[in-house]
Amino acid sequence: MKRRTAIKQLFILAGGIAIATACDSGRNKASIALSNVDFTKDDEELLAQLVESIIPETDSPGARSLKLHLFVMKMVDDCHSSEDQQAFIEGLKKSKTIKGKPLAEVQNYLTSLEKEDKFLDILKRRTLMGYQNSEYVMKNKVIYELVPGRYDGAVKISS
C-alpha cells in the first residue's frame, strides 16, 4: 500500500497525460464496487464474453447487454465461500485463452470443461439466475406477477 502511494506520488511529480493512463491500467478495477474478490477490468470483459456465450444476443438481449457479467461478479463476491471464489478466479484465469475469440470458440471452450468444473458450475448457475430474474425476462418473456390478485386451483389447459 505504501509502495503504491509512493509510486503514485512519483507519477504526480513527473506529471503529464501518460501518468494518468499508467495509473488507470495500474488500478484496472472492475466497474462495480466489490468487497472480497479483486476482479479487474480485464476480468470483467472476459466474463462478459463468457456469459454472452451462455446467453447470446438474438432477437432479444443477451447476457452482456443485460449486464449479467456484473451480476456474476457481484454474486461471486458476496454469496460464495473463499474456496469457491478461489476456484472461480483460477477458472477465469485459465479461460483467458478465449479472450477476444468468436462466440463459437468461447462456447467450445466452456463445453470442453468437465461437467463438475467448479468455475463452470458457478458461472453458469449465476448467469442463469441473473437471466431468469432479470427485469427484461420477467417483464417481457416469462412474466412475473407481483400482485396476482387471484387464485384459481383448476385451470383447464386448452391444447
Partner: peptide, 22 residues
Amino acid sequence: YSYSDTEGLGEELKNSLLNPKL
C-alpha cells in the same frame, strides 16, 4: 411448476429458458 431444460449453452439454452414447460 414450470421448468426449463438448463443443459447446454447458447441459443438453444436461451430458447429453453424463455419457453418453460409445465
